[in-house]
Design a protein around this nucleic acid. Structure first.
Lengths: 172, 172
DNA sequence: CGGAGATACTTAACATGTTAAGTGAATGCG
DNA sequence: CGCATTCACTTAACATGTTAAGTATCTCCG
């Protein structure tokens, strides 16, 4: 902030092209990000109408399939970090969409389950969500979709255990 | 919050399995999220050592290839929303990693470029970054990687123009 | 020329991502 | 038993994602 030259013809001219790298727009992380965004863009409006975020929806879906889970396992299932999950559960509980009980055997654990209201909300969202998914499948092709997911799974596998030894994140 | 029953044998018992849906852990968004996370986990530690976040690194890389860009085009290139970019540019400018000049012809536009310091930082990060990318490529297979990215691109294409007509997001 | 509308950002507000630290409860071991 | 360690979460702090609103500038048409 010492100076703010308005004259383009001086020493502070852009220092571009000095660090050759791959075209980052074609990097794997970018490809994955763009693809995921393209997919999520289809779902967000519908979720939004029901007052749900993508992550809240993930949690409800994870809970709908089971009786109750510990927070830690829910984090693994919904692929959320502990702190995010903690906040979201607090909000979902305030909205009476989920219920929490401390485990009898281990006072540290808290068992989370979906409430009747939560089930009702899910029931109202699920049809649209399934329809959108079906449309995506039909657009892209069911076979190609299966192939893609197969490759994504392989990618995940091939990188498992490469990062730092301590995986803070939720992964099976 | 009217009641908080501790007794499991009552009407508030978990209401699971009442909304049949696909196993969400196998949904496309989750597959993409997990795959991307597996990839990014490889890069984050290195970036972190250099005091950069993933997004800051994207911006620097986008800037390294050109003389200067408008903020809006940079958003498109780095695939960031305007508000995110606005904040990050403020911080990167404070750290003297980028420079900004108001465009002469149009006072609304601001031209962004990487600074000499920014170039130096990039030069110190790039080797590790490239090495990690090479390792990922080798682990997964160069051919498969190309295939995967091809499919991701096709997925993106097949969904283009499906969402709401007004695409706020940065996309070509 | 002048003001309505469009543009290019920026700010604001709220939710999540990410890492580190904190808290209370369980475990293991001397 | 006593206490250090581990465990299951929660809080805190900072950065980004996401949508809406605000600001300054520019365009264009009457």
């Amino acid at each position: 902030m010492t100076k703010k030259p308005a004259d383009p013809a001086n020493g502070s001219a852009p220092a571009a092209r000095q660090v050759p790298m791959r075209d980052f727009s074609r990097s794997l992380p970018m490809s994955l990000l763009r693809a995921r965004e393209a997919v999520m863009r289809q779902f967000r409006p519908s979720l939004r109408e029901h007052g749900l975020t993508e992550q809240q929806w993930r949690i409800l879906r994870a809970l709908a399939a089971i009786e109750a889970v510990e927070v830690t396992e829910l984090a693994r299932t919904a692929f959320l970090l502990g702190p995010s999950l903690s906040r979201i559960l607090r909000d979902l509980e305030a909205r009476n969409l989920i219920e929490r009980k401390t485990a009898k055997a281990d006072q540290r654990r808290s068992m989370v389950s979906i409430s009747k209201e939560g089930v009702k909300l899910m029931a109202s969202v699920a049809p649209t969500s399934e329809a959108i998914y079906a449309q995506i499948t039909s657009r892209f092709g069911a076979r190609k979709l299966a192939e893609l997911q197969e490759m994504l799974g392989e990618l995940e596998q091939s990188l498992a255990g490469l990062g730092s030894a301590d995986d803070t994140r939720a992964e099976g």
